[in-house]
Nucleic acid binder design. Sequence first.
DNA 1: CTGTTAGCGCATTCAC
DNA 2: GTGAATGCGCTAACAG
Lengths: 337, 337
Amino acid sequence: MTIYDIAEKAGVSASTVSRVINDKPGVGEKTRRKIRKLLEEYHYTPDIAARGLVMQSSRIIGILIEDIRVSHHTDAIYRIEQDMSEHGYTCITLSTGAEPEKKQAYIRILEQRKVEGVIMIGSMFGEDSLKEEILQHLADTPVVLVNGDMDLPNVYCVIADEERGTEECVSYLVRKGYRQISYMKDAESPSNNRKLSGYRTGILKNGLKEQIFQAPGKDTNPQDSVDRGYAAAQEILNLYPGTDAILCGTDMLGVGCMHYLREAGREIPGDIAVMGVDNTIFGKIVTPTLSTLDNKLEESCQNAVRILLEAIDGRSSSRKVILPTEIIGRESTAVSS
Amino acid sequence: MTIYDIAEKAGVSASTVSRVINDKPGVGEKTRRKIRKLLEEYHYTPDIAARGLVMQSSRIIGILIEDIRVSHHTDAIYRIEQDMSEHGYTCITLSTGAEPEKKQAYIRILEQRKVEGVIMIGSMFGEDSLKEEILQHLADTPVVLVNGDMDLPNVYCVIADEERGTEECVSYLVRKGYRQISYMKDAESPSNNRKLSGYRTGILKNGLKEQIFQAPGKDTNPQDSVDRGYAAAQEILNLYPGTDAILCGTDMLGVGCMHYLREAGREIPGDIAVMGVDNTIFGKIVTPTLSTLDNKLEESCQNAVRILLEAIDGRSSSRKVILPTEIIGRESTAVSS
DNA sequence: CTGTTAGCGCATTCAC
DNA sequence: GTGAATGCGCTAACAG
């Protein structure tokens, strides 16, 4: 079914049908009604790609993310998709994995699809190799980086102040009475480095001693973080036997950490406290419930959508937005009195 | 950058450029090289939509799902997306929500995008109202229903035998020594009814008494299931005080159920056993770990991809595939001896 | 080996 | 109020 088919059946020209479809003036009431009826009858739906070709607009938004299975990310994608959908856009979501080459390949795919805007979630998208790729393949497409940083005229950034957040986590733990606070760092990334940096500042300000351990390996599957947290907790207790609190780079690491501590016979939070980052569902369902730093990913994404829509419409907006984080206190850090 | 721009710069015609881009024969080696160089130099990438218009193929696959935030679903989407990506397809994933009207609207969107194939995940997509919609708007597009059932020439079905599965769960619990086995049913759906039916058969075969309770309400957010499971567990213990095992329709309900039992001072699995369905990450991280019925969603999706690709290529394949489920025994059902 | 022509489905001038 | 013509970026059939 094309507009020509409908036009023929109605005994009019294609342009008249087009006018009716797009509710444009210049069509007699009776012709309009007749065409509307035919449209209904034959279940006609316009071909968006063809329309896009002439209108130079795909109505497609691209979303890039390392792994959509990270539940934290999934919630973000969901929000973006729902919001964009309401504005008439369709989203293409691509899980790129960690390698820069794959990320570049996916940027090419978005270019081919002529997306009107892009949202990239994760600090790893701030890499220099991607900056180059964006410059060459998405130079005049608005891009919003969530939790990432990049200096390019068409790139906007929304980040949560995790550095300040982890710093406050340390003070929070200190107020709860903990003194030997270790940090379990996740894989190398700008975001994870910012969190670590915040921890260091917090330790310094409170006159304590740094105890840092990077959980080795990386995730093939997001669930792997649990095992990595488990293993890392063991190492931390070996390295720093006096540890009475572990601040983990993510909730998932925190969950693994708690598993180990339980098996090792340590009571949480009596003997030792555990805290995560991300405020995921996992923290709510484990026993005891896990205190965490909410880095406002969903709010970040809502901002990203707003900024992207503004940029697409040509309305300028602030190139960089920074959101405050929030500590969510739960059982894993409550002092047993 | 269009092929015409490149053609002009190379001093050839657009068709020659097109031939080079698509690695077609009939171009001299030197012209080919020259064009390749220009293509590189100007970072040319073809417009897939324009190509699709003439080739009558969008290279897009549509995925419909009620809520992508259900972690169980996310894993499924991830697999499909990765596999399809390898075959040169781009996926559009839409969270439709529960209302049939919205599902219909999303089917329309897929039609407009001229998707070459569709995968719908969830038994609710087997509804009659959607059958009508598919008939009218997706009549000659291959559709694969995962965990759903529909009789239409272009619709293929992949389902896990959950009915047999829950039946076996009952027997499994009986073998572990439990005798008053209650069933916590999730919201109304064909899939949930099949699970309930399996439970009933299992109870009957083992000469036990049915104890069924439907968790009221429904999820706005997948996390809500935890609270619903919590509330339902309380009701079940009121209605059937002698209950010594609760089989829950999903892991999420199971998690909420465990939370309540713990608060009520019941020991799991000593006093009472809990079992879920879905084999999600949640079952692995809760304390004690949750036994569950693996309904093989990921395997189902791999089958769905295979079937869809075959159907798109015109190779016919079986219209219905049924997969066996598997019981995953964990701490929540181990008899304390 | 290469160029010309036509057309995919649609929206948009410009005539009438 | 309506139709004919044009072009979006691309591939394919045909001509040379």
